[in-house]
Design a protein around this nucleic acid. Structure first.
Length: 425
RNA sequence: GUGAGCGUAGCUCAAUUGGUCAGAGCACUGGACUGUGGCUCCAGUGGUUGGGGGUUCAAGUCCCCUCGCUCACCCCA
């Protein structure tokens, strides 16, 4: 066990941090209920084809970021790099189309991508994933976006930017693509090398380039909105109208394109101003062709994924609170060995009664036990020595004030249950 | 995959031009206060200075390699 460390790009979420994560899950779970989304737990590995066909063979994720391996029977499996494809797979596999539509589902869990780690980017990262599958209504797009914004609102996040765009559909995207290529062709020599490479493979990505010269070229590029087909144009307008109606703050960004092939129509992103270069805290959109791509019937869907690691980073950066950190409520302190048995009994009576209680197990001196109680931020100490045991009492010390009083042994549990209950409110 | 910066006790960091430089604070454990925490004081545990090689009388301190971390490109949550 010497020198074995966690693999590159993964990390341990330790107690000082994990309780913050738990509080975010609490908030998320409540919002899911408020919006009518039900939780599912999905496998963290799937057949490789699910992702290669669903996300798109030529995407970066599939080409170079997947953890793919064969199991002992030779099947090719892949650690999930995202959840949407799994969600749609589960929807199809369990015939959810026969239930009320759309199926509104969510899940939370780790995703794995083989990338170079940097601020806000890990090889195993956590996402909150919400999907509404089985409806093509723009109101569902609105709901999904609104849900993500509600999460950030309740967590108290500020300095966020919401970008919305439409990436069209198989009917109009090729038209726009050609128009874009025609325009960019005139500036080909001025584009950066990577963009020149993107020109044929994925010209839409050039809109996203950060190189200043590319940006100034694309400033004058044709706008997707002028090339959407009737259906996509109407859909986009409805989404924008719906967002405006519910008072969502957002900006239309014609440069917004998504890296995954399955997106159609609505694409959106939420950016945090308090992260590094990896500033997307949430991204999503509509994927009406995903189900077919993985072998199912045509099934529209829309959803988003929010990055938990990045949410936590942003919240810490903004100095936001995470609710109350759990701590022990009472500590049983033994003054001498003659009280140890009684102390043990009291410890478990309190625990059974639901009072978070601890007690030293290693035979430390009383002073050390008191110190530990203080360090654990216990609100009360139940002090037991031989004399207390004989008298049938417990010396109850309130740590914040230092005051101490003797309570009858048979009343102590009820007393602490009461105090603990009051402390929770 | 590419580039830059950095790697000294659990944590945060010291160590003049290579020469008692392997230290401090915090944390932890114990003690001063033999039945009482948060303050103070004292002591102790803890490092083959990421690893390997080289230069030198002498290297955390210079050179090379390697591993790792961080940030950025790329891409995205």
């Amino acid at each position: 066990m010497e020198n074995i460390k966690a693999p590159r790009g993964v990390r341990d979420i330790l107690p000082d941090e994990s309780w913050k994560w738990a509080s975010i899950f609490d908030v998320t779970r409540k919002i899911a209920e408020d919006f009518g989304y039900r939780e599912v737990h999905l496998p963290i590995f799937e057949q490789t084809e699910l992702f290669s066909r669903g996300i798109g063979e030529t995407t970066d994720v599939v080409e170079k970021e997947m953890y793919t391996f064969s199991d002992r029977s030779g099947r090719s499996l892949t650690l999930r790099p995202e959840a949407t494809a799994s969600m749609v797979r589960a929807y199809l596999e369990h015939g959810m189309a026969s239930g009320p539509q759309p199926s509104k589902l969510w899940c939370a869990g780790p995703m794995m991508r083989y990338e170079r780690p940097q601020k806000g980017r890990y090889r195993q990262f956590w996402q909150l994933d919400f999907e509404a599958i089985g409806s093509s209504s723009p109101l569902v797009d609105v709901e999904v976006i609104a849900l993500s914004l509600e999460i950030f609102r309740r967590l108290g996040l500020s300095n966020l930017e919401v970008l919305v765009n439409s990436v069209g559909c198989p009917v109009c995207r090729p038209v726009y693509r050609s128009a874009l290529q025609a325009y960019l062709g005139g500036h080909f020599e001025s584009l950066c090398p990577t963009c020149q490479g993107r020109y044929d493979r994925n010209p839409l990505r050039i809109l996203d380039c950060k190189v200043p010269t590319c940006r100034s070229i694309t400033d004058g590029a044709p706008d997707v909105r002028d090339h959407l087909c009737e259906e996509c144009r109407v859909h986009f307008d409805e989404v924008l109208k719906g967002l405006a109606l519910i008072g969502a703050k957002f900006r239309i960004d014609k440069r917004l394109v998504r890296g995954l092939d399955y997106y159609t129509k609505t694409a959106y992103e939420v950016l945090s101003g308090d992260l590094g270069a990896q500033n997307a805290v949430c991204g999503g959109g509509r994927y009406d062709n995903l189900a077919e791509a993985i072998g199912g019937p045509h099934t529209p869907g829309v959803g988003f994924a929010a990055g938990l690691d990045r949410i936590v980073l942003t919240m810490e950066q903004q100095g936001l609170g995470f609710g109350k950190e759990p701590s022990i409520f009472a500590t049983v302190v033994i003054a001498d060995e003659g009280a140890r048995d009684e102390g043990l009994r009291l410890l478990y009576e309190l625990r059974k009664a639901g009072v978070p209680t601890d007690m030293d197990a290693s035979g430390k001196g009383m002073k050390a036990q008191m110190k530990a109680a203080g360090a654990a931020k216990a609100a009360y100490v139940c002090l037991l020595g031989s004399s207390e045991v004989v008298k049938g009492v417990v010396a109850l010390k309130e740590m914040s004030t230092g005051t101490q009083a003797e309570i009858e042994r048979d009343r102590i549990v009820a007393e602490l249950v009461l105090k603990a209950g009051a402390a929770r409110c």
